[in-house]
Simulated scan of single mutants.
Amino acid sequence: MIFGGLLPDSPAVNVLVIAAATALIWFGSGWLEESADHLSSHYGLPAVVQGSIVVAVGSSFPELASVVLTAAAGTFNMGVGAIVGSAIFNILVIPALAGVASDGHLETNRTIVYKEAQFYMIAVSTLVVTFALAVIYAPVPDGPALAGQLTRPLAAIPLLLYGLYLFIQYQDVGDHDADSPDDVPVAREWGRLVVGLAVILVAVELLVTSVESLRHTFGIPEFLAGVTIIAAATSLPDTLVSVRSAKAGKGVTSLGNVLGSNTFDLLVAIPLGVLIVGTAPVDFAVAVPMFGVLTLATVLLFTFLRTDLSVTGLEAATLLLAYGLFVAWIVAETVGATSLIKGA
């Protein structure tokens, strides 16, 4: 229902709501980015920490909400699929669009390549190991052969790794020597940050609700919608924030947002859903192929980032082509043309 049933649930109304929600996300992400930039300058945070922590955590709230809601509703696998699909979208599409926005030459640095990107690879591996431990030590009775229960102790593993990530970022802040401007209205900027987050959350909820309604109207399968449409919808704040940063010549902040957002989604959003509901089933046969694609996408981006420490126009086009191939594969899985994902 849209606005509690105040508006008719028709395709035309849903399209209008999607357009309005997109506009709200545009404004909300603008407030989020500007306030984060001013606050980071005030507190003397490096650009990479600004992107990977301050902006990334804020723009990841929609993914966090989706996991918590699906875990509470007993459809945790759909939430995990949306998170992984969002991560693949972030890795392949957002850097490509940011590269285009920066005139086909998105600058990066060694910190992004050798700290953020490599730590993100560790995050992916840690979540796969956590899922494997769930299958080994907490199998689902009478469930699929590779289904396990994620418990609170298992959920603590990725959370502890994120604690290490925060510690590393804290050390970087301590090593960073920056001038802190005195004319930043701190209270006002924190207020803009909170308002920006609230606008993004409300808008994304409307966006996802309308997309879900259109999915039912046109008969789009749940799995296909989860890893593509819903994933792209919840990634819209990350996309707008990263593109804005790239257009402003802040390639490091743009890429830091992408990698930091994905790290937060994998190490915090998924475990937090488990902590709230106690246990959540996960199908290893569905999760591993998706994580395999995510790993390949991450390796592709890592290769491009390390080559001359920039993303060129040709590399951006290659990333978009890779995402197109991913969507084509998911469609093929949905219609039964391929069967690499067991149990989807």
Rank of each mutant, 00 (worst) to 15 (best):
V268C: 05
N257F: 10
P221C: 00
G292W: 15
R244D: 05
F218V: 01
A297E: 09
L240T: 05
K247P: 05
I276E: 11
L240R: 02
P289S: 11
I276M: 12
G251T: 14
V243A: 00
D265N: 15
V288C: 15
I220V: 13
D283G: 03
A246W: 02
F284P: 00
G260R: 09
K250S: 02
E222P: 08
F218N: 00
M290N: 14
G219Q: 08
G251Q: 14
V282R: 08
F218C: 00
A232H: 10
E212D: 09
I276N: 02
V277F: 07
S261F: 13
S213T: 13
T234F: 06
L224M: 10
A248P: 00
A285L: 15
A285Y: 15
T263F: 02
P281R: 03
T253S: 09
L300K: 12
F223V: 13
V243R: 00
I220N: 02
S261G: 14
G226W: 05
K247Q: 14
L305W: 07
T307M: 10
P271H: 11
P271E: 10
T228A: 01
R215I: 05
D238H: 04
R306V: 11
V286L: 12
T217N: 11
V286R: 12
S213F: 03
L224D: 08
L272K: 09
T253K: 10
I229M: 14
N262Y: 13
S254L: 10
P221S: 04
I229K: 07
E222F: 07
